[in-house]
Amino acid sequence: MAKAVETQNLEMAKSARRVPQEEWYLPGHRTCQGCGPALTYKLVSKATGGDSIFLGPTGCMYVANTSYLCSPWAYPWMHTQITNAGAVASGIEAAYQVLIRKGKYKGKLPNIVCMAGDGGSIDIGLQAMSGMMYRGHDALFIMYDNESYANTGIQTSPATPYGANTTFTPPGKAIPEGKVLFPKDACQLVIGGHPAVHYVATASLAYPVDLINKVRKALNYKGPTFVHIHSPCPKGWLFDAKKTVEVAKLAIETGMWVNYEWENGEYTYQHTPKEYKPVAGYMKGQQRFAHLTDAHIAKMQAFIDAKLKAPGIPVALPVQGPRES
């Protein structure tokens, strides 16, 4: 059967100075001012370099990037449906395996990278993503998480936090908190059920060198890898465009986001504060949470407190489902 072809051996960037000045995700795209996912895209592209093939399932990072028959990518890029990034990546990887084996492609296996939003990763795109992870294709799946279907006008997704006001979860008399559900845990979905996966990480655009190194580490692994990247969205979360990085940092400081790596069953944590700040500070900076009462914020704090007991590792969380009373 198929012999594995040579994969990447990318060097870690030790400091900001070692981050390449060269761009692969080029200036000239229609993303919003201060767009978190665009920043994520830029950093991921610096990590991969040009020997890469990127797949863009439908979402902000497709629609706002390719408008009007032009594109901002210096490496090969292909649109996929929001449903099938993982499957198209599987097909490309399988094709390269056989083309290299038969001597029809002379280089080594390119970095095959899916840049999927939260919907394209763990909602409508979950099946294809899981298929790619299960089958062990040598490709990287990146979930740039802006916590909503932002491209279509900020609708709730499984990554949208409890209490967020989205255009599908508007707060009202009957449903005062807006979004009533707690989010899916993307990394645990991948870690929990895919024996071919050896590396999963979370990253934040507020820590670019760490983000770049995690992407490179993921690419250096043979087989499928998953990196979940927190990418604040000024338009959807309703904060000032200049605060994208500040909001992302605050998420780390309050425990709303935890940076960790999972390598062959071992967890390591990065950027853990000595003491977590209350989540209220994070929530109050974003208009999407403006309607919440103290009781709602306390519910969120309880959820985060439980999660932080063992970040990344599943623990029983005090979450009430919508059908429980």
Binding site: H29, R30, S71
Partner: peptide, 23 residues
């Protein structure tokens, strides 16, 4: 005029098709 299959050659330094300085 759209290229075959709407497949475009990639840009190298910047995407001049989407100037955003006027925002």
């Amino acid at each position: 005029q759209v290229p075959l299959g709407a497949v475009l050659p990639a840009n190298k330094k910047e995407n001049k098709g989407m100037i955003t300085g006027n925002w």
